[in-house]
């Protein structure tokens, strides 16, 4: 925690932005995330809520993420973090850890669920509480909400965020999510996007809907768009050749393709992935840096492609 309130609020805003993967970008975070992660960095927004309230709030825990530990210890570095997605935490972690061993799920006061290998008393031995009564019901409720939200979101190629918010408010009201609101909170694109549970803010009882591209464009960008980046390093392209490749690969978007060329060395301390692409760049070839949807003015969507080359 910083002593500068702005720094903490900006950090929370960053968390919130990161937690909502609605942007159609070539380099999107993978859904399954691994990494040596200090558990203390879980920042699932305990502000204003007491520890007892979190530990006894099955709905809140059911919308939180699940940390899978490979050993029955709270040491950082032995954990991977999964989106619960309405599944049983032990089933999620059995898949992740690829184990048939007995697993036990515990509630964390920070507002998430941890799963450890071990006997049923593992939570107590680690000084943690078991999941509260009603957790499984809450989890199934989240799973139903997820299915209902997906059905609404996928019912059209593009639903304006405000319209989507109204439709999802009806879903909330009709499926027992009393006190919850569907709110439009940010984003540039013309179409509403929401993923469950990442768009659920249990501490505020909100579904956060953001703007993004139409679903059809998102599909192309996350397929052909993502593939274009490593493909640009498969052989040595000059800028003109890469422009042609870009236009050919992204033609199915039926959008205006705006290509910009950034000439100059890569910033110090940075490298490209995959290594073959870095090698091409070092050899003087042009490579694709990123591909994303952009919205230069209301009602207009373009696909931007950034090409990077050492020398123009």
């Amino acid at each position: 925690m910083s002593e500068i309130p702005f720094v903490n609020r900006l950090g929370d805003a960053l968390d919130e932005a990161i937690a909502t993967p609605q942007r159609a970008k070539a380099r999107r975070p993978r859904r399954r995330r691994f990494g040596g992660l200090a558990v203390a960095v879980f920042l699932l927004g305990a502000g204003g809520v007491t520890v007892a309230e979190i530990l006894d709030d099955p709905e809140r825990l059911a919308t939180a993420e699940v940390a899978c530990y490979s050993e029955a210890t709270l040491e950082p570095g032995l954990v991977s973090v999964q989106s619960g997605e309405g599944r049983s935490p032990t089933a999620v972690c059995a898949d992740v850890l690829r184990t048939d061993a007995a697993l036990v799920a515990c509630a964390r006061k920070e507002g998430f669920v941890s799963v450890f290998p071990g006997p049923p008393d593992t939570c107590e031995r680690l000084g943690l509480k078991p999941l509260p009564a009603g957790y499984d019901d809450a989890r199934r409720k989240v799973a139903r909400l997820r299915a209902n939200v997906d059905r609404v979101v996928r019912s059209a190629d593009c639903i304006p965020p405000e319209v989507l918010a109204r439709r999802l408010q009806r879903v909330l009201d009709e499926s027992g999510w009393r006190g919850w609101r569907a709110v439009v909170d940010r984003g540039e694109g013309p179409c509403g996007w929401l993923g469950i549970p990442v768009g659920m803010r249990a501490d505020r009882r909100e579904l956060g809907i953001s703007g993004g591209p139409p679903r059809s464009l998102e599909r192309i960008l996350s397929g052909a768009g993502v593939a274009l980046v490593p493909a640009s390093g498969e052989r040595c392209y000059d800028v003109a050749g890469l422009r042609r490749l870009t236009r050919r690969r992204l033609a199915p978007t039926r959008r205006r393709i705006v290509v910009t060329v950034d000439a100059g060395p890569l910033p110090q301390y940075e490298q490209m992935e995959p290594p073959a692409r870095q090698q091409r760049f070092d050899e003087g070839c042009a490579v694709v840096d990123e591909v994303y949807a952009d919205y230069p003015k209301p009602g207009r969507i373009v696909v931007r492609v950034k090409i990077r080359v050492k020398r123009a």
Binding site: I4, I18, G35
Partner: peptide, 17 residues
């Protein structure tokens, strides 16, 4: 942080001030 954005938050907390 490459695969887990939460690690980025710790980096942020460490350096933002």
């Amino acid at each position: 942080a490459g695969d887990d954005p939460r690690a980025f938050r710790e980096l942020y907390d460490r350096w933002a001030d």
